[in-house]
Write a protein that binds this DNA or RNA. Sequence first.
DNA 1: GGAACGATTGAT
DNA 2: TCAATCGTTCCT
Length: 210
Amino acid sequence: MSGLYHRKKDILPLSFYARDTVPVARELLGKVLVHNSAEGLTAGLIAETEAYIQGDPACHAYRGMTPRNRAMFGPPGRAYIYFTYGMHHCFNVVTAAPGIGEAVLIRALEPLEGIDIMRKRRGRQRLRELCSGPARLVQAMGLEPAMYGHDLTEEPLVLINWTPVSEEEVAVTTRVGISSGADLPLRFYLRGNEYISKKGETSGENTGNL
DNA sequence: GGAACGATTGAT
DNA sequence: TCAATCGTTCCT
């Protein structure tokens, strides 16, 4: 059995997600994503997130509900997984009330558990190449398109409380890899964490107060 | 029906 | 710096 386990009471409740998206994106830092799959348990500490909100031209829900983004308009606390660049998937957590198309993209995890399983899934050995990037962590954690809409308060894929994160530990910058809405300070990461996505490292750090 | 475009990654 | 690769979205 693995060293990391959790109880039902450790799972983030629906109320955590059912509120404004930006504070949820900030507070997801330091939480842990756990996938208890057939191959074994993998888990990682959330080190980098981005908020995608109403009125934001980079948000997939900007032009209304479509077949792809419908989960964003559904109940909070669910998985929104999308396919991009013809080969990758990214994982988001749906936030805010039903009817509001917002979500938080998980961009990087610090691997905690099931590292050999992650290595096998990724075909890479170095820890920093396992979960440092939105499509990388999807692969390392064994997340599948079939998990679209999955309730993250239910096994086998849950988000749990882990370690508190103070404001001083949080850096705020613009988001990575977008063209419109590029000036909005909606990216959050754990300052100094070595598992931040590579592209993210170079995007200007506007930390300041927010 | 057609075309442009990615919330990326890995190799050059 | 650049190719890989294809579903989604929007236009005709």
